Computed example of a mutant assay.
Amino acid sequence: MYEMTNFSRELKNIEADLVKMGEAVAGQLEQVKDILLEEHTGPDVQRLLEKDNDIDAFDRHIHTSILHLISLQPPLPEELQALTTMMRMAREFERIGDQVVNIAELKTETGVEALKHHVSATFADGYMRMQQVSMDMLARTLEGMQSQTYSADERVEQMDENVDELFSDLQQQVIRDMKANPQQLEKVAPLFLAIRYVERIADHVVNINRRLDGYDELDRS
């Protein structure tokens, strides 16, 4: 049964759940970063897919907690803004989880054990850099949430520009790889989707980071 204490304490509990959700998403990203290029067994991929259920559960729990809190005690305008922001951030985390699932499903759909044997080293290196930058963006955003400074990190925006540049470069590199090895066309073509999913992950992180601006003005003491 939901036990109501005071608004500020309940708000902190929701904040803590949101951070836990972000940390779970970061764990997903760590596990999916090389899943296309390196050899992974079916159970490895399946476990990654199943972890998305945990992310979805976090999303439902946070939304339910917020709605329940609002129904029990009408929030002040700044409190309502904070709660709305947290709901949106949870949804952005959930969408990152969806993109991780998309990447993992590509592994299953291609039926290739390790794509690094079918693409150039240039693509493989660029793809891993793209993944790492996205992970670093999320890490910086989570640091702000964990320290409760709740302010946007301008470096996240700059890093997203790096991801966009890598995305554009890798699109062209996939085309070059396909031209160089047309017999590998069916195996390499899904990488267009893979880099798009990573680019979208970075976009969702940017959205979370931006929502932190102004949120630190709320008095949660």
Rank of each mutant, 00 (worst) to 15 (best):
M1A: 10
M1C: 04
Y2D: 08
M4L: 13
T5P: 04
F7D: 00
F7T: 07
R9V: 04
R9N: 08
L11T: 12
K12G: 01
N13W: 03
E15F: 05
D17Q: 14
D17K: 15
K20L: 15
G22Q: 02
E23G: 02
A24E: 11
V25I: 11
V25F: 08
G27V: 01
G27T: 05
E30W: 05
V32Q: 02
I35Y: 03
I35D: 03
I35K: 01
E38N: 14
E39P: 02
G42C: 01
P43V: 13
P43C: 08
V45W: 05
R47T: 11
R47N: 15
E50Y: 03
N53Q: 09
A57D: 14
D59Q: 10
R60K: 14
R60C: 08
H61Q: 13
I62H: 12
H63C: 08
T64I: 13
S65H: 04
L67H: 07
S71W: 09
P74W: 06
P74S: 15
L76I: 04
P77E: 03
E79S: 02
Q81D: 11
M87E: 05
M89V: 15
R91Q: 04
R91M: 03
E94T: 03
V101A: 12
A104K: 02
T108W: 03
E109A: 10
V112D: 03
V112G: 01
K116G: 03
K116Q: 14
H118Q: 08
A121T: 12
A121I: 12
F123L: 11
D125A: 12
Y127F: 15
Q131A: 06
M135R: 15
D136G: 05
M137Y: 09
L138T: 06
L138S: 06
A139T: 15
G144A: 01
M145F: 00
Q146E: 15
S147Q: 05
S147E: 06
T149R: 15
Y150L: 15
S151A: 13
V156H: 04
Q158P: 02
M159W: 08
D160N: 15
D160Q: 09
E161S: 09
E161R: 14
N162V: 12
N162T: 11
N162D: 13
D164F: 10
L166I: 02
D169C: 06
D169I: 00
D169P: 05
L170Y: 13
Q171E: 12
Q172A: 13
V174D: 01
R176W: 04
A180E: 14
A180P: 10
N181Q: 07
P182C: 05
Q183Y: 01
Q184S: 09
L185R: 07
E186C: 00
E186R: 12
K187T: 12
P190F: 06
L191V: 02
A194H: 01
V198K: 01
R200F: 08
D203R: 08
V205L: 06
N207R: 09
N207Q: 07
I208H: 01
N209Q: 13
R211G: 05
D213L: 10
Y215H: 07
D216W: 08
R220I: 10
R220C: 02
S221Q: 08
